[in-house]
Nucleic acid binder design. Structure first.
Length: 814
DNA sequence: ATAGGGTTAG
C-alpha cells in the first residue's frame, strides 16, 4: 500500500524524470523531486530502506550529489534502518558536513552501542558549528550506553563552552547522573543548573530530578528524600511516573507511612502504583496491609497483573498464609485465559515457593515440570523445596542437572547439606563453589559455618571466620548468628559470647543462639540472666526462645523459673505453647522428680499427647526409676512410632539404670523381633551414650555419683560382650575431683576414646553432643581398625561409619 | 516506576 502511495503521489512521472535527467537542466527540480521522494521514507518503516537505496541509486546514475537536508534525510533513513555503514559512506564523501548530519550520525552510533565513534565525530566538529542538539545527542548517547560519567563530563564541557542547555539536556544528564550519583551535592548542583536555565517547570526535567534525589536517598539514606519531596510538591503537574518514583523512594527508605501518604494522595492510581505499594509492604513484612491493598485494588476496579500476583503470592508463602495463597492461585487460573503452564514465569516461580513452603514439594515439582519456560529462579526455588523437606538426594540430583547456577544455588545446597548432617559435603561444596569462581555471599558463609558447627570442627570454623572478615562480611547478621552457634558447639562459649557482643545488629535469632549456647554448656543461671536482659531490651521472645529457655532450665534444674516462663508464654507473649513446649515442660518436671505433676500436665494438655511428650516422660521415668509409668509411656510410643529405635534404647536405659540387665536384653530382643532398624552393633553404645548425654547436661545433679558407678559396671559389661566402647565412652576414668575437662575436638575425643590421652583422675568430662565425624577422624578410625584388628561402628548424626580391616562403609540409619 | 528464588536460632 505504501508503494502505491509513493508512486501515485510522485511529483514527477518516470518519463518526465528521464527527460529531465537527460537534459540535466533543472537541478532544483530534481532536488525537489528527491526531497519529496525521501519524504515518503518513514525512518522506522522497513520498506523505507529499499526505497532509499533505489532513490540513492537514481541519484548516482543521474550524477546528482546530495547535500543539505536531502543528504541528512538519506543518512537518517539509513541509520534508522540499521545500515550505519552506508550512512557513514555518505558522510565521508561530504567535505564539510553540517551539524544536522553530524548529529544524525552521532545519535546513530550511540544507538548502535558505539559511543566511541560518536565521540570521534563530535570531537571533529568545530566548536563554531556545534549546537545544543549535538551536545544533547552526545549526553543522551552516553546515558543510554550506561556511561554516566562521560555524560556528565560532556555536560560540564557544554556549560564551560557557554552553550545553553534545554529541557532535553537536563532530562538526559539527570537520568545519567542517577546511575552514578554518590553524593547529595551532585544532585544539588544539577538542581541549581535546572533553576538557572529556566526549565524548572518542565515535567520531564522535574521528574528526572525527583528520580535523581530518590536514588541518592536510597543509596545514602540521607535527607535527599526531603529534597525529592520539595521538588515533587512544587511540580505544576505530575505524571504517574513521578508519583510511583516517590512511593518506591519512601519504600526503599523504610518509610512506609510517607509512601502510603503519597499513594493515598494520588487521584488516579495506576496499577503500577498499587503494585509498588503492595510490594513495599511485602518487603517490610507488613503482610496484612499488603493483602488489604490487594483486596481494595479489586474493589476499586483495578486489574491485577503479574506483578501484583507475584508480590501477593510471595507474601502468602513467607507468612504461612497458604490457604489464602492457594485461593489467589485459583483466582489466577479462573481469570487468566491462558493455561496454567503459560502463566508468566515469575508467577509460576512464586507458586513453586508457595507450595513447597506448605510442605507440598511434589505439587511444586508438578508446576515446575509443566512450565514451558524456566529460568534460574525456577530451578533455585524447587531446589530449596527439596532441601527444606530434607530430600537431600533429590536436591543433589537436581543440583547436578541444573543448566546453570549462581551463588544462590550454591548457598541453598550448602545449607541443605549442613542442616541434614552432611557437614563435610557442605564444606566441600563451599570450596568447590569458590574454585568455580563464584563469590560467596554472607549466607553462603553462614551455611558453611553451620556445617562446621555440625561437625564440631573448630579449625575449619575459625578459618571461615577469618575469611568472613577478609570478605568484609564481619557485620553480617546471619553469619554472626551461625558463628555464635559454631563456637558454642565447638565448646568455646566465650568465643560465642564475644561474637554475640560485638555484632553490630542482633535479632531474635542471635538472642536465641546465645541463650542456647549457654544452655548447652549447663550455665543455667546465665541463661536466665540473658533471657531477662532480652526482655528488658524489648526483644520479643518467640517459640524457639521458649524451647531453648525451657530446656536450659530443665538441664540446670531451675524448675520454678521454667514453670513461670511456660506460664508467661501465653499470658504475656500470646504464644500458644506447642507440643514441643509441653514436652520440654514435662522433661523439666520429670528431671526434678515431679513425675506425678508431669502426668497431670499430660492429662490437662489441650491436645492429644504425641511422641515427644511420651518420650520426655519415659526419659524422666528412666532417671527416677518409675517403672510403671515408664512402661506406659513406652507402650504409647510403640503405638505411635513403632519403628523408632530411640524408644527401645530409652526403655533399655531405664532398665539399665536399675541394673536389670535381663530386661535390657529383652528390650533388645523385642526390637530385633519387630525388625526395627537399629544401628548395627550400636545399641549398647547408645545406652552408654544416653547415660552420657544425661551426664553432660546434669553434672550438678545428685544422681551423678550413681551414674559414675553405673558406667563402670556398664563398661565392664560391654567389654564382656565384646563391644568396642564408643569414643564418647570414657567416663569410667572419672573420679570425684572437681576438675572439668571439655572435649571440643574430634582428635581429643579420639585420643581419649582409645586411651591415648590420659585424663587426670577426678576430671569431669564433657563431650559435646554434636561432635560428628570429620575427615581426620575418619582416617584415624580406619587406621585404628586396621592396627587393632577391630570392627568399629561410629554414629554420626543420621549416618553410620563402619570400619573393618582398615576399610570403611558408610550409610544412613533410616 | 512495580514482581519471582536464599540464611542464621531448638
Amino acid at each position: 500500500m505504501k508503494t502505491a502511495t509513493i508512486t501515485s503521489s510522485s511529483p514527477l512521472s518516470q518519463l518526465q524524470l528521464l527527460l529531465l535527467l537527460r537534459r540535466q537542466t533543472d537541478v532544483r527540480t530534481i532536488a525537489n523531486h528527491y526531497a519529496s521522494q525521501l519524504h515518503l521514507c518513514f525512518p522506522h518503516n522497513p520498506l523505507s530502506y529499499s526505497l532509499a537505496r533505489t532513490i540513492h541509486a537514481q541519484m548516482i546514475t543521474s550524477g546528482f550529489k546530495p547535500r543539505g537536508h536531502i543528504l541528512n534525510r538519506l543518512m537518517d533513513v539509513y541509520c534508522k534502518s540499521g545500515n550505519l555503514v552506508y550512512a557513514r559512506q555518505l558522510f565521508d564523501e561530504i567535505p564539510q558536513p553540517d551539524i544536522v548530519g553530524r548529529t544524525t550520525l552521532i545519535a546513530a552510533y550511540s544507538d548502535a552501542g558505539d559511543p566511541k565513534q560518536a565521540r570521534e565525530i563530535f570531537d571533529h566538529t568545530p566548536l563554531s558549528i556545534r549546537d545544543t542538539v549535538s551536545y544533547n545527542a552526545m549526553i543522551t548517547g552516553y546515558s543510554h550506553n550506561d556511561d554516566g560519567h562521560n555524560a556528565v563530563k560532556i555536560f560540564g564541557e557544554m556549560m564551560a563552552d557557554q552553550f545553553k542547555p534545554d529541557n532535553f539536556t537536563f532530562t538526559s544528564v539527570l537520568s545519567a547522573s542517577t546511575r552514578i550519583v554518590d553524593d547529595e551535592r551532585q544532585c544539588q548542583q544539577l538542581h541549581c543548573a535546572v533553576v538557572k536555565s529556566g526549565t524548572e517547570s518542565v515535567v520531564s526535567v522535574l521528574n528526572a530530578l525527583v528520580t535523581l534525589y530518590v536514588k541518592c536517598a536510597s543509596l545514602l539514606s540521607t535527607s535527599s528524600m526531603d529534597a525529592a519531596r520539595k521538588v515533587f510538591d512544587g511540580m505544576p503537574e505530575r505524571d504517574e511516573l513521578t508519583w510511583t518514583t516517590m512511593i518506591t523512594g519512601y519504600v526503599r527508605n523504610d518509610d512506609l507511612d510517607s509512601a502510603r501518604k503519597i499513594f493515598d494522595g494520588m487521584t488516579d492510581k495506576l496499577d503500577v502504583a498499587w503494585n509498588a505499594m503492595i510490594s513495599g509492604y511485602v518487603h517490610h513484612g507488613c503482610i496484612s496491609e499488603a493483602l488489604e491493598l490487594f483486596k481494595r485494588m479489586k474493589e476499586d476496579g483495578i486489574q491485577y497483573d503479574e506483578f501484583t500476583y507475584t508480590s501477593v503470592l510471595s507474601a502468602c508463602a513467607n507468612s504461612g498464609l497458604f490457604k489464602h495463597g492457594k485461593e489467589v492461585h485459583g483466582n489466577i487460573i479462573r481469570t487468566e485465559v491462558k493455561p496454567a503452564s503459560k502463566l508468566p514465569l515469575a508467577v509460576n516461580n512464586a507458586l513453586i515457593t508457595l507450595y513447597w513452603k506448605n510442605n507440598e514439594v511434589d505439587q511444586a515439582r508438578e508446576i515446575f515440570d509443566k512450565m514451558l519456560e524456566r529460568d534460574l529462579v525456577s530451578w533455585n526455588a524447587i531446589l530449596s523445596g527439596y532441601v527444606n523437606v530434607q530430600r537431600i538426594e533429590d536436591a543433589k540430583e537436581l543440583f547436578n542437572k541444573m543448566p546453570e547456577r549462581n551463588p544462590l544455588t550454591w548457598t541453598v545446597m550448602i545449607a541443605g547439606f549442613a542442616q541434614n548432617g552432611f557437614g563435610e559435603e557442605g564444606l566441600k561444596l563451599f570450596n568447590q563453589m569458590r574454585m568455580e569462581g563464584f563469590e560467596p555471599c554472607d549466607y553462603a558463609f553462614a551455611g558453611a559455618i553451620t556445617a562446621c558447627a555440625g561437625l564440631g570442627s573448630l579449625e575449619n570454623g575459625r578459618q571461615l571466620h577469618a575469611q568472613l572478615i577478609r570478605f568484609g562480611f564481619d557485620s553480617s547478621l546471619s553469619a554472626g548468628n551461625a558463628l555464635v552457634t559454631m563456637y558454642a558447639r565447638c565448646g568455646i562459649v566465650e568465643a560465642a559470647h564475644l561474637v554475640f557482643r560485638t555484632m553490630p545488629y542482633v535479632d531474635s535469632v542471635s538472642w536465641n543462639a546465645m541463650i542456647a549456647a549457654l544452655g548447652q554448656h549447663g550455665h543455667g543461671a546465665q541463661v536466665v540472666e540473658l533471657f531477662e536482659r532480652m526482655l528488658q531490651e524489648e526483644i520479643l521472645p518467640d517459640r524457639i526462645t521458649f524451647l531453648t529457655v525451657l530446656s536450659a532450665c530443665s538441664h540446670a534444674g531451675l524448675v520454678e523459673e521454667g514453670c513461670r516462663y511456660f506460664e508467661s508464654m501465653n499470658q504475656i507473649y500470646g504464644i500458644t505453647p506447642g507440643e514441643d513446649h509441653y514436652a520440654r515442660l514435662i522433661d523439666l518436671l520429670c528431671r526434678a522428680g515431679k513425675i506425678s505433676e508431669a502426668k497431670g500436665v499430660i492429662e490437662t494438655m489441650p491436645f492429644v499427647p504425641g511422641a515427644p511428650v511420651w518420650e520426655a516422660l519415659l526419659a524422666g521415668c528412666r532417671i527416677h526409676g518409675n517403672e510403671e509409668l515408664g512402661i506406659e509411656a513406652a507402650e504409647r510410643l510403640f503405638e505411635l512410632t513403632p519403628q523408632h529405635s530411640g524408644t527401645y534404647v530409652l526403655l533399655a536405659n531405664m532398665y539399665a539404670s536399675m541394673g536389670r540387665w535381663n530386661d535390657v536384653a529383652k528390650v533388645r530382643k523385642v526390637m530385633r523381633d519387630r525388625g526395627v532398624k537399629k544401628e548395627p552393633g550400636c545399641s549398647w553404645i547408645e545406652v552408654a551414650n544416653k547415660v552420657h548425654v544425661f551426664m553432660v547436661g546434669d553434672t550438678l545433679h545428685p544422681e551423678v555419683q550413681e551414674v559414675y558407678s553405673f558406667l563402670e559396671e556398664l563398661g565392664v559389661k560391654m567389654r564382656e560382650l565384646g563391644y568396642v566402647p564408643d569414643t564418647k565412652y570414657v567416663l569410667q576414668d572419672v573420679g570425684d575431683e572437681q576438675k572439668e575437662y571439655v572435649l571440643s575436638t574430634h582428635s581429643e575425643k579420639l585420643a581419649v576414646g582409645f586411651g591415648l590421652l590420659k585424663l587426670p583422675r577426678g576430671a569431669t568430662v564433657r563431650v559435646l553432643k554434636n561432635l560428628r565425624i570429620c575427615g581426620d577422624c575418619h582416617k584415624a578410625f580406619k587406621f585404628m581398625s586396621k592396627v587393632v584388628e577391630r570392627e568399629i561402628v561410629v554414629r554420626d548424626g543420621k549416618r553410620f561409619h563402619h570400619f573393618k580391616d582398615g576399610e570403611c562403609s558408610c550409610g544412613n540409619y533410616w
